[in-house]
């Protein structure tokens, strides 16, 4: 709606200015005394050069300042949910420090409660990244060594796209973030399902994947964490990988066999990403790992 208003306004202005400009080229025979000329000129300059921009600027400020204020993390009567987001080359680490059963960690997906303000504390682990969920507003830089805060609110439950908004290197184009706002109860349930215990239970309970777990410990554990299995922090936390909608920070949709595809071809799918290519591992090992990780759906 606002877009159409602006578009028509802009078109009118553009056409008017161009028409005016072209009109001046029409031969007119108006003779004016110097005093008249000065008066005409002053009218143009004061009207168009001062009054017009001043009025526009005031209108813009009146419109823009109140909206900007909403995003400040001023104290609220009821402290809002805090979500910590850290940008890495080229993935997102998302933490919920306020979860009732201890901190919940996930990657490349941001699930938030709808209908209430949420405070985001954002930072970066390496270079500068940009945190920005266009539909919710407010873009803020993620700076190494610094925590920036922003308050956002999703009025309705829904899925929103987001992408890193600051050039961060070769993988910048492949740094999407899946954002979903859930009703409060669903959000609480989502958090509860990701308690350390629940996730560890999920990862270790099925004996059919014993060898996959072993391979994971050998080949993946130094970088990746899976609750109850490993504690690596260099790459994304994989404890609830199967439950995500996308792989590789939005590179690949999570379907059956997607993890295997990723493990096999990730340097083609997302060129330059920091994970080493595992050409030394045979198909069975990789698909075994993939099958297991896809079961991690809390």
């Amino acid at each position: 709606m606002i877009w159409w208003v602006m578009l028509s306004f802009a078109t009118v202005v553009l056409v008017a200015v161009t028409a005016l400009w072209l009109y001046t080229f029409k031969t007119r025979d108006v003779s004016r005394t110097p005093a008249q000329e000065r008066r005409v000129a002053r009218r143009w300059i004061v009207g168009g050069g001062i009054v017009l921009p001043v009025v526009t600027v005031i209108a813009l400020l009146a419109f823009g300042v109140p909206t900007g204020k909403r995003m400040l993390t001023l104290p609220l009567d009821e402290p809002p949910e805090v979500i910590e987001v850290t940008g890495h080359q080229w993935w997102w680490e998302v933490r919920y420090p306020g979860a009732p059963n201890g901190v919940v960690v996930t990657s490349n997906q941001l699930i938030m409660p709808a209908g209430e303000p949420v405070d985001f504390h954002v930072t970066a682990a390496d270079v500068i990244h940009g945190f920005w969920i266009p539909r919710l507003g407010g873009k803020i830089d993620m700076l190494p060594g610094r925590i920036n805060r922003i308050r956002l609110e999703a009025d309705e439950p829904g899925v929103f796209g987001a992408q890193c908004a600051e050039l961060c290197g070769v993988g910048h184009a492949h740094m999407h973030l899946y954002v979903e706002a859930l009703p409060r109860e669903e959000f609480d349930a989502w958090l509860a399902a990701r308690s350390e215990e629940a996730l560890a239970e999920l990862a270790t309970s099925d004996p059919a994947f014993a060898s996959a777990r072993e391979n994971f410990t050998t080949f993946c554990a130094s970088c990746h964490r899976v609750a109850g299995v490993s504690a690596g922090t260099i790459g994304p936390d994989l404890s609830d990988l199967g439950g995500r909608t996308m792989l590789g920070a939005g590179t690949l949709a999570m379907e059956e066999g997607a993890v295997y595809q990723w493990l096999r071809h990730h340097q083609t799918l997302k060129p330059g990403n920091r994970m080493p290519q595992h050409d030394d591992l045979d198909t069975d090992t990789l698909s075994g790992l993939g099958d297991w990780l896809e079961t991690l759906t809390p």
Binding site: L20, W21, T24, F25, R32, E37, V40, A41, W44, I45, G47, G48, G49, I50, L52, P53, V54, T56, V57, L60, L61, G64
Partner: peptide, 24 residues
């Protein structure tokens, strides 16, 4: 923000000076 928008004034002055010059 306000300072950024202030720049519109000198720019607009020039645009309308040009228009007025053509006009006259």
């Amino acid at each position: 923000s306000a300072a950024s928008m202030l720049v519109a004034i000198p720019t607009a002055i020039q645009v309308f000076v040009w228009l007025a010059t053509l006009w006259l």
